[in-house]
Amino acid sequence: MVVVKIKDLPKEKFLLPGNTSCQGCPHALGLKSLGMALGDDVVLVVPAGCTTIIAGSKDKSSFKFPCLHVPFASAPAVATGLGSAFRRLGKKGIPVVWMGDGGSDIGFATLSGACVRKDDMIVIVSDNEAYMNTGIQTSGTTFWKARTTTSPTGKREEKKDLALIMLMHKADYVATASVGYLQDFIGKLRKASEIDGFRFIHLHSPCPPGWGFDSSETVEMARLAVKCGAWILWEFDGKFRISPMSKPYADKSKRAPLTEYLKKQRRFRHLSDEDIAEIERRIDEQWRVVLALEDVF
């Protein structure tokens, strides 16, 4: 684990103010952290999504990173090509794929291919649990029962656990992170940058307009997800560890009440007590798996 102190973080901005991100945008938090973590080693590859918009328009880019915009399903493969170019031409840098959960749905085969080949890149899926850029439609990672514009009575399927899938896919580095804990995220990015090969970070990104909460509560919502145990922070770098921010919540009695997290969001307003009990059961199940993984790896 890499410990990150706020005062030591660089002041240079790689996400420039005055961009088109919504108020309280979690992607913006993630992108600025990426700059703090890896600075000008980053070369961004961005498929369609909110970040396409945030990146700027006309001749103005909101990034101090180089950034290549690419079709929705293509990003990790493009990064493969870029990584090859950097290596062959002796340029020091890391292709960083920054995509949403949409990119990881439609580009799942591409993600898998790059992972299998252990191609040199860091892939960050900034997961706001729906296709937000097109107007809040259900994605593979949308939470069970969450309302979206294509599941108006609540999603019927489970959230796809991307990070565990990538772990089983034998990625060289896998972590979950949260925009509620940016120092943890920055530490994980730095750790990832020290490892060769295919590195994957699943970043939990609560979206104010998409989930239906006030723009001031992005960080709070992300932290509540961790505190109630619904989002578990962990890291695999050859060894699987539950991250310190999540560690206490292995003990169910230490977790924040689930309702505190759910009731603050418009997408969960319709939940019945039975639904909440079922979500709690599923969270317990997730913890059982993650705790077991700590023993296995």
């Binding site: 000008d40 080693d41 980053v42 070369v43 396409t52 918009i53 990146a55 700027g56 328009s57 006309k58 001749d59 880019s61 990034f63 101090k64 990173f65 180089p66 950034c67 290549l68 915009h69 690419v70 870029l82 170019a85 950097f86 031409l89 340029k91 020091k92 840098g93 890391i94």
Partner: peptide
């Protein structure tokens, strides 16, 4: 597209 050459290509315009 190379490190430390911060151009953005193919975005909204």
């Amino acid at each position: 597209i190379e490190p430390r050459n911060p151009i953005t290509v193919g975005g909204l315009t």
